[in-house]
Write a protein that binds this DNA or RNA. Structure first.
Lengths: 205, 205
DNA sequence: TTAAAAAATGAACATTGTTCAAAAATAAAA
DNA sequence: TTTTATTTTTGAACAATGTTCATTTTTTAA
């Protein structure tokens, strides 16, 4: 191993350290409430160093948003072993909501904040690979459901988007505290009453 | 009319002027990109004056979020004349999406931003009247649908929340630019392909 | 041991929301 | 009308933020 190799590894390590510190603070005190100085303090480096490794705050948020998608992938792992696509779709909905509620700041970053998308636009990058891949996974399962004679009369792409919108809408309203006027039976609102109604709906399609 | 009355009227007028200026700038250049100084400049007053009429930026955002709900109410007006609840529900979905797409910054403020809710919390106000009222209107229509034997096997409150989540989810993903990976047929994506699929879904419930 | 290259630093800048003593404008009193 | 009291408006000043960059420190190569 050359010195250049080690340097590259160290560079990568420090980049990860910054991201790890940032994520910790984001979860602890919220993304908006976390400053670059906070992040630098957290890992005992100076502000300037953070800017050596990241172009700006959006770059940090974008990288962390990608990490969020990796983590969602981890949640989704257990789905691979489910043969029946309808059963997989049901579980997928549950896991999606669970992930959103257990990782609210990360979910917000992945699907709501402007920063990650702004970063892509700034880099002249039209595509949003993380989202497209996840959407593709859902679409594949819906496709298999349709092959088994479910969802008659629906079109794959828009229907997939509807299912995504349904669970995303729930999570979004909950995370942004717009569910105050909704009277649920269960204390753990979305994950029980919401999810149950979601099950009823896809059953009828 | 006493002097005190006139003063009260003038005070109210200036408050409205500030809100009007703020709204104009929000729509023109985005909420995050608009500063208090911008708003003050827009209406030819000083920064300090803005703070005489509003406690802080959140107070402006909250009042503007309320105005947004009034405007949504304006969009909803034509629904009153529709007798058939199912037909009314369908039109309601269309108008909701239309409002969201035509007033993206306002929609964001009403249903996504933290500011209006933070303002309520700061005032020790637990309730979110604007949202609860709008949710109530949707719930009433869904209730009438159920009385006409639609939506068998569903529960009013959670089902209403599902329908809201569905349209909100679509609008949210579109406004926050998360629909890049979804291939629609129509150029006006959500309002046609999305809405059509929404129609198919509520038809089957 | 020394010179060159790389990495880390933190003071400095522009911009933000916010405050508040002072100034200006208005109303009430003499 | 003139003076006093009250209300309204002002903008300089403050702390906090994202960001930059000349300087210092550390590491590598000679």
């Amino acid at each position: 191993m050359s010195v250049a190799d080690r340097k590259a590894r160290e560079k990568e390590a420090l980049k990860m350290l910054i991201l790890k510190g940032a994520k910790k603070l984001f979860i602890e005190k919220g993304i908006e409430q976390t400053t670059i100085r906070n992040i630098a303090d957290e890992i005992d480096y100076s502000v300037g160093t953070v800017y050596v490794y990241f172009k700006d705050k959006n770059a940090i948020l974008h990288d962390l948003h990608s990490i969020g998608f990796q983590e969602l992938g981890g949640y989704f792992k257990e789905l691979f072993s489910i043969e029946d696509p309808m059963e997989r779709l049901r579980k997928m909905g549950f896991i999606y909501i669970k992930f959103a509620l257990e990782n609210q700041e990360m979910y917000d970053l992945m699907f709501n904040l402007k920063a990650p998308i702004e970063f892509l636009t700034n880099c002249d990058n039209e595509d949003w690979n993380e989202g497209t891949t996840t959407f593709g996974a859902l679409k594949e399962t819906v496709h298999q459901c349709m092959q088994k004679e479910h969802f008659k009369g629906h079109t794959l792409e828009p229907l997939t988007f509807m299912i995504w919108s349904l669970v995303h809408g729930m999570c979004c309203l909950e995370i942004r505290q717009r569910t105050k006027g909704v009277k649920f039976n269960n204390p753990d609102t979305i994950l029980y009453d919401g999810y149950n109604e979601f099950l009823k709906i896809i059953e009828k399609l």
